[in-house]
Amino acid sequence: MTAHGTLAEPGPGTGLDDLQAVSARIIGNIERVIEGKPDAVRLALAVLLAEGHLLIEDVPGVGKTKLAKALARSIDCSVRRIQFTPDLLPSDVTGVSVYNQETRDFEFKPGAVFANLVVGDEINRASPKTQSALLECMEERQVTVDGTTYELQSPFMVIATQNPIEMEGTYSLPEAQRDRFTVRLAMGYPDPAAELAMLDGHGRTDPLDELGPVSDAAQVRALIQTARQIYVADPVKRYAVDLVAATREAPELRLGGSPRSTLQLLRTARAVAALDGREFVLPDDLQALAGPVLAHRLLLGADAQINHRGAEQVLADILRRVPVPTARDSREDR
């Protein structure tokens, strides 16, 4: 599959209103498949707009892959799906140079990452070597094979799923690698009503098959540009820094958030604010995103593990502690 999108310039009508309209279409489309999970859907879209990557971590059968597929199908762009297995090779992901007898030259066969949306299923089943091949691409948005660098397409988003229960024969992502993912998402079980609706809907046909694109890559690129323009006041930036710094200083944590996480936190907050139709970021956005963006990067200390406290709880404590920027802070900056 190749990219369908054209390299159209983000023209008029790609402002905040446009972003909201398009995103509402996408969300509505996805929700035809994933019922009762508006927050997860929204967050996934926000990651796309923030040029991040999404890690969906949950027990089997809650719709991880379905969410990834639905998002991919809603946007008319190239989508690749990699089912990670232990025997998957790095070249399967990145691509390989093959000798062409006819041309008597090496020809590059692009791997699975050469797509706008890459769905990596059960990423923890692949060998660390293959995992890291994918993770390199995620960060650098380019692939280098045999000394030649190939740019990846834009937008580029990896949606990886992971099953935290089944540990047999898996190579779970090291925490350092998880840092590459902007957001970790747990789907959670649907509520009874949503599950009932799902039974009705899925009973006859798979709604995923009926899902058509409501947007395209060019439009998404424009939306990403719009989200980038969202204003972040200096006190709010400082608040983001304070939050991440607090994770580094928390005694319960062995490893706090990286500077990269601060950057991604702010980026995602911009996207979320844009989805909200707001032209500026609120501390509320940062607070709401602290869990999804930061929790999977944190390493709990022994105390927290003994006390059965998760990273989310530690983060909640930090959110309760770090003061939000007040009127005085904003006055000082003006």
Partner: peptide, 9 residues
């Protein structure tokens, strides 16, 4: 109004 005053451009 307050959050706008605090954080908006």
């Amino acid at each position: 109004a307050e959050e706008r005053a605090r954080y908006a451009p």
